[in-house]
Design a protein around this nucleic acid. Structure first.
Length: 255
DNA sequence: ATGGTCGAATATCGA
């Protein structure tokens, strides 16, 4: 089973690239973030033509998450548990092929110490509660998304400069760590111990050419699925194409 | 140089 995640930075502007990527990589499940479109305007048919079912939760201009799957999607849920007051569309989850898949877009946090930063930390806690509610046996879970946190020194281009900054702050690391204490493994690190492998590069400046990026797009697997994970890759070639998203797709194979 | 670029929307805001 191949599962992928991709912050597409607008599904409408990226749909041709997404269709092309799906044709070439043939994921069973593709989680998307920052779709930036209301559900009625989501390019659903383009994915259905490829044989994929689509579940989406979008809004105008900002955020938005989706799951495309060539296996039937069951028990689709939108938002965090107890998230009735949340206007932002940042989480959608569904069952596919016997696994519980979650597509999450964690708040950026704007700046360390801001109200948005506190909301970012709270989102991690609430995501943990949502996992408890959706998968109490802690098995068969694939939590994908843009976490807006680089887990450790290997995941940032300049650890000394980044330490304490947004995306590499101790509070963010504690929040991510507590979430992973649910029993999750970082799939990429099961197969790639090396530093300097990133999933996001800022559009601004020459960061891509200098490989000044961050690894903030993660596939987190429950222990039972981690034991079956045969491959994990970041498709950074996608970031080097014309009109790219600022994020590369990440994919895992589970045997 | 608190910059730079992209996307949504059409002046700025978010990232």
């Amino acid at each position: 089973m191949r599962i992928a995640t991709w912050n597409v930075n607008s599904i409408r502007i990226r749909i041709d690239a997404v269709v092309d990527w799906i044709r070439r990589l043939e994921p069973d499940v593709l989680c998307m973030q920052e779709t930036k479109v209301v559900d009625d305007d989501f390019p659903t048919e383009e994915l259905q033509r490829l044989g994929y079912a689509v579940a989406m939760a979008g809004q105008k201009t900002y955020n938005g998450v989706a799951i495309a799957s060539r296996l039937p999607l069951r028990d689709v849920r939108v938002g965090l548990s107890n998230g009735e007051g949340d206007a932002d569309k940042r989480l959608i989850s569904a069952s596919a092929g016997g696994v519980r898949v979650l597509s999450a877009y964690i708040p950026n946090g704007k700046s360390v110490g801001s109200p948005s930063f506190a909301q970012k930390l709270a989102f991690f806690t609430r995501l943990g509660s949502t996992l408890e509610a959706q998968a109490p046996d802690r098995r068969g879970v694939v939590l994908c998304g843009d976490f807006n946190v680089a887990p450790d020194e290997r995941d940032v281009f300049d650890p000394a400069r980044m330490r304490g900054q947004l995306h590499f702050h101790p509070d963010e690391h504690r929040a991510l760590g507590e979430l992973m204490d649910f029993g999750l493994r970082d799939a990429y690190r099961l197969h790639h111990p090396e530093a300097g492998r990133f999933s996001w590069w800022d559009y601004r400046g020459a960061g891509l050419q200098k490989n000044e990026g961050l690894r903030i797009d993660l596939v987190l697997l429950s222990h039972d699925l981690a034991a079956r994970c045969t491959r994990a890759e970041i498709d950074d070639a996608e970031r080097h194409k014309d009109k790219p998203s600022d994020h590369a797709p990440v994919l895992v194979d589970i045997g």
